[in-house]
Design a protein around this nucleic acid. Structure first.
Lengths: 172, 172
DNA sequence: GCGATTTACCTGTTCGAACAGGTATCCCTC
DNA sequence: GAGGGATACCTGTTCGAACAGGTAAATCGC
């Protein structure tokens, strides 16, 4: 009869929801030939235009090594192109190809679908509640991962991923 | 001025929270020599006792191939032992080693710590809210992934992961 | 201008996630 | 008891995530 919900802890719920969510997105993305994670890169490119790999790493909170290979695969798949940066010969600019524009529409539809399935039958109030709670948890976790402001090398500095979802995606 | 929160969608929040959560757990688990995912197997073994790989696959909602290699690595690390099943010569029973008992304490402390950091400054009511919302989303996602009850081969049938967290872990 | 440091990218490696395919074993039916 | 199918496990593969290390280039200090 503790005031605590007897079933479980938030940690478990997060793990399960994350799994299901990733699974759902992965299923849908596979149909258009993308692996989970690649769509985030493409959406960043579509929204932000051509940019350096280092920028993508920072915005997406990813790893330089992971980004290198992800870009290589997207390049091989024909969705991006790389051209040397004029200002900085170390850098290469990643450019979404015209061929990727067909993908964009599909990916945006998939993300809308994932959101719809996730929200499901939640009322507007419940949905706002969910967002509020998730943000609180996100803040908590961000603080936990950056314990002493530089002692733990958080890898994902302040702005966690960037994520797609393109707000209401009013422009298309 | 729509009634919708203008910042974003639930999908994005879930992705970020999941990342941070996994990152936090991964950081802590690395200190005791475990990779994310291995702790779930160990906790299932500690709680449920020796069991077959197939049982672990079902309870954890994992993959038989992934489980094979995870068990191999845990065996190599000295945390589990495998002995042939007497009843079924196809099966092998996975047994947590006595050496793994020292790990158990550490892993349970880590999970408690993750939960504490995740909950953070949420009040009890907010925490209950979070759980309720996460369960709703989980239900939505489960329904989305199992669209026609057998057409999509959901891979994770009904009971998603099992997750550790050992309620209050009253016995130790 | 020269050397040290930082930055940008690449490669190698380990590990989980997921899929395909293979083998041994069990079980049910004929 | 001899198929046929299901089950349990293993292996090979691709991919993202993360870490370590390595090269080239830009930048800063002198």
């Amino acid at each position: 009869m503790l005031p605590v919900a007897q079933d479980e802890v938030i940690t478990n719920a997060i793990v399960r929801v994350a799994r299901l969510h990733r699974m759902l997105a992965g299923q849908l993305l596979r149909r258009v030939g993308l692996h989970p994670g690649q769509e985030l890169v493409m959406m960043q490119l579509w929204n932000g235009g051509p940019q350096r790999q280092a920028d993508l790493v920072q915005v997406l909170g990813s790893d330089a090594a992971t980004m290198t290979r992800t870009i290589q695969r997207l390049e091989h798949a024909g969705f991006v192109r790389r051209c040397p940066c004029a200002d900085d010969r170390r850098a290469s600019i990643v450019v979404p190809t015209p061929a990727s524009l067909a993908l964009r529409e599909q990916v945006e539809r998939i993300w809308a679908q994932v959101e719809e399935q996730t929200v499901g039958d939640l009322t507007e109030a419940e949905r706002a509640d969910a967002l509020r709670v998730l943000h609180r948890v996100e803040e908590n976790l961000t603080r936990a991962i950056t314990p002493a402001e530089g002692s733990g090398r958080p890898r994902t500095p302040g702005p966690p991923p960037g994520c797609p979802g393109a707000p209401p995606a009013g422009e298309h």
